[in-house]
């Protein structure tokens, strides 16, 4: 296990290095000129050149890259051109908000999808299963932001139960914060539920036909014990990867969803950064999102080992 963790961390470092290369390359290919964005269309050639020199944009690309990576290693992501603040500080402020949204959404999705998937599998091809499958099909077909709009329409506009958007910090006003969290988190949670549920259902169906399930029944175990104790713990193993994947997907989804709900998280920050050609900020956002992605998959692999005793990474037993 210990060996495995070390190796995985090593691989993550390599991946992260590749991500910095790509992020750097992509942002430098983007059309548009930062100096032009800052100074406006009426700027003179001289002032543009002066600003570029000031920002260090006239240096060779590889110098800029090493400069940037060296900074990254020390936790310095550079200065946002648009906001004039350190990128790290900007991200540190926005990231927890996005995490709050994505984590809550994933929790909602797991809480809904696993029981539903189990229920559908146990009642295979009967009314509850068919209903759930239909729901899942609709869920998968609709993009996340559309769920957001539907939720706003129903719960905010028609029933006026929740505000249409905005963010309040939970440390300032817990109730108000939760109140505003409900809609975006459930919209995203619903979008994720469908896929996890389908995975749970098919995994559960496979497990329920296993020999050890037959033996559990032959030992006189009740249906409840067979399903919850014997089948579920096996069925959930492949679902973990799906959950981790869906969490990363949710993190990508926040870019649009945050815009729909006026949620000042990392998604909106990324959008702003791209619109204003704020290269250091774009790069910082890419790195952070990639890191989240890697960590969630790593966590999934560790959870795997927890649920499946046959996997003891690099074990000697």
């Amino acid at each position: 296990m210990y060996n495995y963790v070390i190796r995985r961390v090593g691989f993550m470092a390599v991946t992260l290095f590749l991500v910095t290369l790509i992020a750097f390359a992509v942002t430098n290919i983007l059309p548009g000129n930062v100096a032009l964005v800052i100074l406006g269309p009426n700027a003179t050639e001289e002032s543009l050149a002066a600003l570029q020199a000031q920002l260090g944009l006239n240096r060779p690309l590889y110098v800029q890259y090493f400069d940037w990576v060296l900074g990254l290693l020390q936790g310095d992501m550079g200065q946002s051109l648009r906001f004039g603040e350190p990128v790290a500080a900007l991200i540190a402020e926005r990231l927890p908000r996005s995490l709050l949204l994505a984590v809550t959404a994933t929790l909602i999705a797991v809480a809904l999808s696993i029981p539903l998937g189990v229920y559908a599998a146990v009642n295979q091809n009967e009314a509850p299963d068919l209903t759930a499958s239909m729901f899942a099909f609709v869920g998968i077909s609709m993009p996340i932001f559309l769920w957001g709009l539907v939720f706003i329409l129903i719960f905010a506009v028609w029933f006026n139960l929740f505000p249409t958007g905005g963010y309040v910090s939970p440390t300032e006003d817990l109730v108000g914060s939760l109140h505003r969290l409900v809609l975006p988190a459930s919209a995203m949670g619903f979008a994720l539920t469908a896929y996890i549920m389908r995975m749970t259902r098919s995994s559960m169906l496979e497990v329920l036909s296993a020999e050890y399930i037959k033996l559990a029944r032959a030992k006189g175990m009740s249906q409840r014990v067979v399903v919850l104790r014997h089948a579920l713990k096996n069925a959930v193993i492949p679902v973990i990867t799906v959950i981790a994947f869906q969490f990363s997907y949710a993190f990508g989804g926040v870019v649009v969803l945050e815009e729909v709900f006026f949620w000042p998280g990392i998604g909106r920050l990324t959008l702003t950064a791209i619109q204003s050609r704020d290269i250091p900020l774009i790069q910082g956002c890419i790195i952070v999102v990639a890191l989240i992605y890697m960590i969630s998959n790593f966590a999934a692999d560790l959870l795997y080992a927890y649920f499946d005793p046959r996997i003891r990474y690099g074990g000697e037993e």
Partner: peptide, 24 residues
Amino acid sequence: RDIRGNRIAMIPQDPMSSLNPVMT
């Protein structure tokens, strides 16, 4: 259910797949 495993028990065929892999 009270009879199965108690008064009539089964020994299945395949030792590799008949034990639940995630339970001791």
